[in-house]
């Protein structure tokens, strides 16, 4: 029966009289697409900070584990669930975090069952640690492509999201991130733009962070 409803709808739409469509004016790409690399990274960081995001610049002379330990100490994070995605791996994570003494670390690969995993991200973890596939300078946005090594709830259920972003992956505009992503992998089941913490202003227009998702978002720039 649904097939016939489908066809009826499509037939009626096809038979409807056409209406002329005007010319689409050219729209200049966001100005951030024209920035040099360091300026682009600076623009990303500035926009990300406007949304109360916190940026840590990793000093390549240090161990990545040290920087992560510093972040966890500063934000009172003791229990972390980590993804196992390629961005993290390239930065030496989560392996390098295993040695941080005051940190309890679990990785999503350690969960066989979705229920067990969900309980951990909702009720156990202080923070979720993931890679970010891209940073977009035009609005200080992180692009997350989810897959078997990067679960959706890591950046959503715990109170803090720590995202590792490579300086090589900061682009000017959304379209650039999408195009690059499309060139290297199949379309993910979900792709997400994250710009700042979860927020609302639904009561008396009083804004606050952490409505349903993380109240704090931290980028570790490597």
């Amino acid at each position: 029966m649904s097939v016939s409803v489908r066809d009826q709808i499509l037939v009626r739409l096809r038979q409807a009289p056409a209406r002329a469509v005007g010319q689409r004016p050219a729209v200049a790409p966001p100005k951030e697409t024209g920035l040099a690399r360091e300026d682009r990274i600076a623009a990303f960081c500035a926009r990300f900070a406007e949304q109360t995001g916190i940026v840590y610049h990793h000093d390549p002379a240090r161990e990545i584990g040290e920087t992560l330990a510093e972040i966890c100490r500063a934000h009172d994070i003791r229990r972390v669930i980590s993804g196992c995605d390629a961005v993290l791996a390239a930065a030496g994570l989560p392996d390098a975090a295993m040695d941080i003494p005051e940190l309890e670390l679990r990785t999503q690969a350690g969960f066989a069952d979705r229920e067990e995993f969900a309980e951990a991200v909702f009720a156990w973890a202080d923070a979720g640690l993931t890679g970010a596939d891209y940073g977009v300078a035009e609005s200080g946005t992180l692009v997350l492509a989810f897959d078997r090594n990067h679960a959706r709830l890591l950046s959503l259920a715990p109170g803090v999201h720590i995202a590792v972003l490579s300086r090589d992956r900061v682009v000017g505009a959304y379209e650039q991130a999408m195009a690059e992503l499309g060139g290297v992998r199949e379309i993910p089941s979900q792709l997400c733009f994250v710009t700042g913490p979860s927020m609302t202003a639904d009561i008396q227009a009083m804004p606050f962070k952490g409505m349903h998702g993380p109240g704090k978002i931290i980028v570790l720039l490597v």
Partner: peptide, 11 residues
């Protein structure tokens, strides 16, 4: 806003 906190795209 320039963009909302979350834009999620499901395929």
């Amino acid at each position: 806003q320039q963009v909302s906190a979350y834009v999620s795209m499901d395929t």
